[in-house]
């Protein structure tokens, strides 16, 4: 074996080692959560790397708690409503920003970008007042309203980017036929924008599903909590006796749908993230 082939072999080995380390680093924590969630509580405090026994007691514990089920219901309601609102408002705004030239367009774009850079805490007390005035405190409505602050800006940006990529001829034909902007948007653009809408909808769903600060601050009772807050507030007899088994089971339950979505729509998500960022 010559020195050159040895070197090439070492390089190849090093590369595959790097890939392996990367895979373990990315997957292991979630894998370990799954392993922990499937352990009986008596074995919880012995470290093990494999699932020895399939014990579903932790899942039974979590799923028999009405507060956790309520949290899942609330999270679904909030996330789905946020996606619908963000797409609806985002799509009309994206048509205006992407297809029409008018004075003040850049200002609007910059305002939207500025809002996406807001620290959420900066509006916390003002938003609290708005939500209380509208009588939405401690209800999903308050969260749906407040979540538009971070879903709307990126929805508008990404949809505008995609809207600009569509050819002009489409719309010209519609204008010659005397179609109104609304008809053009719904009949011409929407069918073509489905992929982009799926991407942004997915990103908005993930963002709403994962949000914590507003959900923690704008809800008060267990029946109105969302999933992240419910998990964060699971507690045991004392600070040092956290029920790790049920916590891990709850974590797995709320994360599996997201992981499945991400693995299936990997390409779409990547294109959405880069479209939003490159223009930003």
């Amino acid at each position: 074996m010559t020195l050159r082939t040895l070197k090439a072999l070492m390089l190849r080995l090093g590369f595959w080692l790097l890939v392996a380390v990367l895979m373990v680093y990315a997957i292991f924590p979630f894998y370990y959560a799954v392993v922990t969630s499937l352990k009986p509580s008596s074995e919880l405090f012995e470290v093990s790397y494999w699932v020895d026994s399939l014990d579903l007691a932790n899942y039974a514990t979590v799923l028999s708690q009405p507060t956790f089920l309520a949290a899942i219901r609330n999270s679904v309601i909030v996330a789905v409503s946020v996606v619908i609102i963000a797409l609806l408002l985002g799509l009309t705004a994206a048509w205006a920003l992407g297809r029409v030239r008018f004075r003040g367009r850049t200002t609007v774009m910059m305002t939207v970008l500025g809002v996406s850079m807001f620290p959420q805490v900066a509006v916390l007390s003002g938003l609290f007042e708005v939500i209380r005035t509208l009588d939405l405190y401690n209800s999903p409505g308050g969260l749906i309203l407040s979540y538009t602050i971070f879903t709307l800006p990126f929805t508008v940006w990404i949809l505008t980017t995609f809207m600009r990529q569509l050819p002009d001829e489409l719309e010209e034909a519609a204008i010659v036929d005397g179609a109104s902007p609304w008809v053009t948007l719904t009949k011409v653009f929407m069918p073509l924008l489905w992929p982009a809408m799926a991407t942004t909808g997915l990103l908005a769903f993930i963002a709403a599903w994962n949000e914590f600060l507003f959900a923690l601050t704008f809800t008060l009772t267990d029946s109105q909590r969302t999933v992240p807050v419910a998990i964060a507030l699971i507690s045991g007899g004392s600070q040092y006796e956290l029920p790790w088994g049920p916590i891990m089971a709850a974590s797995v339950i709320v994360t599996v749908p997201l992981v499945v979505l991400v693995v299936i729509f990997q390409r779409r998500i990547v294109s959405g993230l880069t479209a939003g960022a490159v223009k930003g």
Binding site: A26, F30, F212, P228, T255, L258, Q266
Partner: peptide
Amino acid sequence: VRAAVLIPWAIPTVVSAKI
């Protein structure tokens, strides 16, 4: 590998903090 790398990003922050 690309899909696997995306997993940490998809996990809710609260959940990853707990894990």
